[in-house]
Simulated scan of single mutants.
Amino acid sequence: MSVNVRLFAATWVAGSFLTTVSFGQVVEVRPAPQPGQQVPADPAILEDDEQSTTTDAFAGLRRVSELLGGEARGPGDEGRIAAISDLIMDGQGQPHYVLLSRGGLAGVGGDKIAVPFQVGTFIHNEDQNWHYQLNMTGDQLDQAPVLEEGSLAPLRDPNWVRVNRQFFKAEVIGDEAGTGDDSFLFRADALVGAEVRGQDEEDSIANVDDVILGPDFRATYVILGYGGVAGLGKNQVPVPFSMLQLDAEADDDRYELVVTVQTTKERLQSETAPTLDGNEERMLDPTFLDRVHEYFGVNPS
C-alpha cells in the first residue's frame, strides 16, 4: 500500500467516498505464525507472562466486520469490560491499536481507549465469535488514558502515546516523533464500506465490502463489491491489500482519506476476474488465492 501524503490533524468522522484518518506511533507487529504455531509473545512487553498476542491459526477467515462490535473481556470471571469499537491500522495494514469503548450504550457514547494491539489476545470462541482478552479488570481499564471526544489526534502526540503505553506496559517501538510514513493510521471500520476509485479514474468503481486479516491480524485482502441491487446479485472480487493506495484530501478543518485500487474498472469487472460467487470460504483455498495474485500480477507477500 502506498501513502502519498503526511497529515497533521484528524477528526473522528467517517464518510463514504472520503474517510477521516488519523496518525500515531509506529509499533511492532510480529510475523504471521506457521500452521499450528501461535504468535510468540514479546518478552519486552510481558510481565510475569500476563500478557500475550496469540491467535488461533485455524480460526478460518478473520473479517474486520466480524471483529468490530465484539467485546473485550477481563481475566477470570470478569467477563465483558468494553466493546471493540475499531482497529487502528497503518498504511501497510498492520494493526497498532484496538479501540475500545467503555461505558455508553452498545459501545456508543462511551470513553474511547486505544489499547496497544500487542497487549491483549484475540480469541476465537466456540460460538464462532471473536473477543479481545485483556489481563485487567474494568475498574483498571477506567484508569487508562482516554481519547477525548473520540478523536484520534492524540495518537500522533509522542507524549500522549508514551503515557498510554506506560499505562498498558507496552513498549514504544519505532519512530517516537511519529514523522515517518508508517505514522499514517486509519480506522479499519472507515475502510469497510468506502467507495474505491480505479486507477487513473475519478469515479467510484466498487465499494470495500470487507477487509480480510491474516493470522497476525494484518490486512491481507480487501473484498471489493460492485453491481447488484440493495446488496443482492453483487459481484465480489478479492484484491491484495497491497493494491490499495491511500491519499488524503483536505476538507475544511479535517483531512479525509481517498481509496484507490491499482487496477482499471474493465479489469476489475471483467468476466474473467476471480470472484467469490457468494462463497467467502474460497479465501481459504490456496489455489484460488494463487489465481487472485496471478490475475492482478501481484506476488504473494
Rank of each mutant, 00 (worst) to 15 (best):
F8K: 05
A9T: 09
A9P: 00
A9L: 06
A9M: 04
A10H: 00
A10P: 00
T11Q: 10
W12V: 05
W12G: 00
W12L: 05
V13A: 04
A14L: 11
A14K: 12
A14I: 09
A14E: 10
G15V: 05
G15L: 05
G15M: 05
S16V: 09
S16G: 04
S16K: 09
L18F: 12
L18A: 05
T19Y: 01
T19V: 11
T20A: 11
T20P: 06
T20L: 03
T20M: 04
T20W: 01
V21N: 07
V21W: 01
V21G: 09
S22I: 02
F23P: 00
F23L: 02
F23W: 01
G24H: 05
Q25S: 10
V26E: 14
V26I: 08
V26C: 06
V26F: 01
V27F: 06
V27G: 00
E28K: 10
V29F: 00
R30V: 02
P31A: 14
A32E: 12
P33M: 15
P33Q: 15
Q34L: 15
Q34P: 01
P35V: 09
P35Q: 11
G36W: 12
G36P: 05
G36Y: 09
Q37K: 14
Q37C: 06
Q38Y: 12
Q38K: 13
V39S: 04
V39H: 04
P40M: 11
P40V: 11
P43S: 13
A44L: 13
I45M: 09
I45K: 02
I45H: 04
I45E: 13
L46D: 13
E47A: 12
E47K: 15
E47I: 15
D48N: 14
D48W: 13
